[in-house]
Amino acid sequence: MELIVQGIIKAFELILSFDPEVMGITWLSLQISGTATFISLFIGVSIGTMVALTNFRGKRLVISLINTGMGLPPVVVGLFVTILIWRSGPLGFLEILYTPYAMIVAQAIIATPIVMGISLAAIQNLPPNLRLQILSLGASRLQMVWVLIKESRLPLLAAVMAGFGGVISEVGASIMVGGNIKGYSRVLTTATVMETSKGNFDIAIALGIILLILAFLVNLLLTQVQQRQHPR
């Protein structure tokens, strides 16, 4: 019990004193997961929208695959990304193993199916005639798609939240492809794992609390935006 109380007190000391190492880790986490989410937003929304709006043979299979991808285990992603960017692997020449770039790639791969699946469902959930209505008002195909994406902005914001929440709290892939190198590729989750195994519960608790606050703040911000768009 004392361990926990001590840990929490130390944790707040670390946070309130803006400990440079802790701040550095936090900032890096935000950068990596933010960039990964941003990339997944582009790929996920465009492919998700395309799949939702076109009819082709095997569409159901593709949708099932995307939905399966939403639950992709991070360690599996970490494993495959490691194999690909291993020095003798097919993408070894990039030399990005154990760098933040590798972590961005792995996290983007984790977040993309989440964003894709949610945007696909969002576009499919729009009234079926809305597309025709927009076209009949004289829209080009591109204008029509843009209006549909804007119309699904609320679920798309949910997709961003889900994607970001998924990757900021992910540890398996980050540790595998990033290597948890101090001051370089160490993020909140990988640091928490390490400090816990070292028995440094105070630092681990501090990092855990920061992770929670971060996730909360990002979601609070997006929820604010979402609710403002939706007056009752």
Partner: peptide, 16 residues
């Protein structure tokens, strides 16, 4: 032709 024709559907289909 489409630019000279307006269509009104059964449902209002308004954007939010």
């Amino acid at each position: 032709m489409r630019r000279n024709i307006s269509v009104v559907f059964q449902e209002p289909l308004l954007l939010s």
